[in-house]
């Protein structure tokens, strides 16, 4: 009695896909900022993925993942009609969304998908949402169209200048902050990006929320794998987060901890490829 995939969209072929999964209990409770933990087959690990969208009426949730290693590569072999063995959620504290004025939502990589659900929440309560998204080049940009449906503006930065401003999202963000009164910045993406955003907004004294992606196992506060240092204290990202005040987060420690298993992850990926006859990366 797994969880059926009802729709699959390949957003960037072989790199990023979006799955819509039938999970009515989760869909009816999911709020922006929540995530699920998936286990895709009986020998599988538990991995967290953000709920990028939901449709309580259809009983579905949407996830967007970047293929980076064994489990996401394996997940990429799943098609419409296949079942995911375990989906557990919605987990984590939802985003604190209140009417406050202008909010800038920054997204990088698959973080854009996660940011999308949060930005939508802000728009729904009447905040003016500016979305800032970045990628290496224009083919790797995600969710631009979806964001433009409710954002006041969508600002784009690409490393190669193939779309929007050439450079990093932080440059686009800084230009914007200089000339606007922004009440809050939300940033979701790779840790170096969130760290850079945080340093910048500290300079401009804009309250900033980041969504931390520490390594998780159970996702319900039982193991402490996901612990991060916030304001000098240990916090469990799965139950006390994943969103925290960016200006208090120890990003360097998080970056180190995310490398805990690089050796094993390579072994695991190679093992998977041998069994599935794919070439190694």
């Amino acid at each position: 009695m797994g969880f059926k995939i009802v729709k699959k969209r390949e957003l960037i072929p072989n790199r990023v896909s979006e799955l819509t999964i039938y999970a009515p209990d989760i869909a009816s409770k999911a709020r922006p900022g929540n995530f699920v933990i998936l286990r895709i087959f009986p020998k599988g690990e538990r991995i967290p993925l953000t709920i990028a969208d939901k449709s309580p009426a259809e009983g579905t949730i949407t996830i967007v993942y970047l293929v980076v290693g064994k489990t996401t590569a394996h997940l990429e072999t799943f098609q419409v009609g296949d079942e995911i063995l375990d989906v557990c959620g919605p987990l984590g504290k939802p985003t604190r969304i209140e009417k406050k004025g202008e909010v800038v939502c920054v997204g990088g990589g698959t973080g854009i998908a996660a940011m999308h659900h949060i930005a939508k929440g802000h728009a729904q309560v009447g905040n003016k949402v500016i979305s800032v998204i970045g990628a290496r080049s224009k083919d790797l940009l995600l969710f631009e169209e979806e964001l433009s449906k409710f954002s006041h503006k969508v600002l784009v930065a690409t490393d190669d200048g193939s779309k929007g401003k050439k450079g990093l999202v932080t440059q686009v963000l800084e230009d914007y902050l200089k000339s606007h009164e922004v009440k809050e910045v939300v940033a979701v993406g790779p840790v170096p990006m969130m760290k850079a955003v945080s340093e910048l907004t500290k300079k401009y004294s804009v309250p900033t929320t980041v969504s931390l992606n520490s390594i998780m196992v159970d996702g319900i506060g039982m193991c402490g794998a996901c612990r991060v240092s916030v304001g000098g204290r240990i916090r469990f990202a799965c139950v006390e987060g994943p969103e925290f005040d960016a200006h208090e987060v120890d990003f360097d420690e998080l970056m180190l901890r995310l490398r805990s298993y690089v050796k094993q992850e390579q072994i695991s990926y190679n093992h998977f490829c041998e069994c599935h006859g794919k070439e190694k990366n």
């Binding site: 020998k43 599988g44 690990e45 064994k70 489990t71 094993q264 992850e265 072994i267 695991s268 093992h271």
Partner: peptide, 8 residues
């Protein structure tokens, strides 16, 4: 049982 099982 890693790597037969995924969890490191």
């Amino acid at each position: 049982k890693f790597p037969e099982f995924d969890t490191p």
